[in-house]
Amino acid sequence: MGCFHSKKNKVPPGYEDPSILASETTFSVSEVEALYELFKKISSSVVNDGLIHKEEFQLALFKNRKRENLFADRVFDLFDLKQNGVIDFSEFVRSLSVFHPNAPLEDKIVFAFRLYDLRQTGYIEREEVKQMVVALLSESDMKLSDEVIESILDKTFVEADTKHDGRIDLDEWKSLVLRHPSLMKNMTLPYLKDITTTFPSFIFHSELDDGSA
């Protein structure tokens, strides 16, 4: 069965004790164990090596492993904390923790800023925003002329770039987000609140271990 040679639990690379992960994230131990069920599903969808490869991430997001998407790439890169091209379980839990409804808003704001700072310069530049708008348009049915895109950028920067240097720094980003809370909508996943009921199989295992069934 599978690739395990013995009945002893062989842990994949990057697996960390759920109690440690729980102590360092927004999740409880049960929630971390439930996330492991989800992680196993995603990380075995293409290559069964206990790690999430970009193809597997795309497959889980879009149900299509070949779909290129600038934003999915950025999310993958940010989840890949060790920057080694794959997401291990501890990276998965630590990164998803930011998306928990109880995670601090500050963490969500910083994560979104890093996501949109495509070139990682510490600023969201106008050119980056344009690149992202064009990428969004190309994945949707919306068609906007270059003139309209430029006017959207003008309007956005008049509002966001309060220091008038043509780019948005973290402080400016925070003020913009506080004025437009809807920009943080993607940064909270209500699913994470009831993850133990979505992926309950670990509870079943725990009950068996307790001998209480």
Partner: peptide, 26 residues
């Protein structure tokens, strides 16, 4: 055509690549 009243980030946030809830619909 109607004027677009969204700011750039509101538009960007519509991307399916940013909708991680689909990770849970496996």
């Amino acid at each position: 055509s109607k004027p677009v009243t969204m700011n750039a980030f509101e538009l960007i946030s519509l991307s399916s690549g940013l909708n991680l809830s689909s990770l849970f619909e496996t």
